[in-house]
Nucleic acid binder design. Structure first.
Lengths: 153, 153
DNA sequence: ACTATATAGTTTGATATCAAACCACATGGA
DNA sequence: TCCATGTGGTTTGATATCAAACTATATAGT
């Protein structure tokens, strides 16, 4: 019986180490982002503004909650904070009386722009320690892992 | 003036996407872990037990807090929870009256073992969608990124 | 047409985490 | 020796998040 290329025991440890590194990077990058974001935006709040610009606004809260892997209660909270800051507008859905639609305000677009501008200088001196080529190289693998985790959840 | 290999604008977007994927993976894997951990262990609590086995116990809370990138207040909380569950013991430090030392109890070791056993079946069917070779391939890059973020913080 | 079930959004209570203030002890310099 | 500064651990108040319960509306099956 030929042995597997890697022992099953070490395979577990490998995945373990992988998830650990990823968790630490997520934590470090989150606190880095948090430090520089303007308007007291949280990562989640900025993420929502960013999402609305990239993929278009008019989404329902439920769909946004699903997209961000967050409970509807959490999304309610995030939307209320953003609305209080005047960065989004939440309209009733004319087709479904239960539902709502989320739209960016001009101030919301500006806040997202300002966030990107604030993040740029931080990311600017990253290539010295971590070249963009390397980022591009590992990105597909990460997407593959993310997709697998997303579907087998 | 020769152009850079990638436009600076796209470089920012690339890093952005990278951190986004990593954040999502961290979130998905965390909730996966959380679901299967025994004894109502949180990720942080399990992480501490795991750390004590791998790197040895007897660390001070301050050093543990630094290792896990959390505040000392957070570490105080985590240690109190673990002590209440009987998984660690916190002794005074004979050399420094301000300080303490954290030790695993036999029950703590068992809880860590049980956690690994509970996680194994989850990780077992990961290779189908994400081969271990790929994990091994991207791990060094992730370590490099983590180290850079860690030092430039 | 009615009823049962599913979905959208909110609210409530709990928890992990953080930042900042606080106290106790340590350490180095005058 | 004494004081200033630094460090270790805890506490407090705030916040983002979750799970679960709740209300209102939609949809499908009979």
């Amino acid at each position: 019986m030929p042995p597997k290329p890697t022992k099953p025991d070490e395979t577990g440890a490998l995945y373990f180490q992988l998830f650990n590194e990823i968790a630490i990077i997520a934590q470090l990058s989150a606190s880095l982002f948090q430090r520089v974001l303007p308007h007291d935006l949280t990562i989640a709040q900025f993420g929502l503004l960013h999402h609305c610009v990239r993929l278009g606004d008019g989404w329902t809260p439920a769909r946004l909650a699903a997209a961000f892997q967050v409970t509807r209660g959490t999304m309610t909270n995030t939307l209320q904070k953003l609305e209080a800051k005047g960065f989004i507008r939440v309209d009733p859905d004319s087709d479904d009386a239960r539902s709502k639609r989320v739209f960016l305000t001009p101030a919301g677009r500006q806040a997202r722009e300002a966030s990107l501008k604030a993040l740029a200088p931080e990311l600017a001196h990253l290539p010295a320690g971590f070249p963009p080529e390397l980022a591009a190289e590992i990105l597909p693998a990460l997407q593959q892992l993310r997709i697998w985790l997303d579907t087998h959840r």
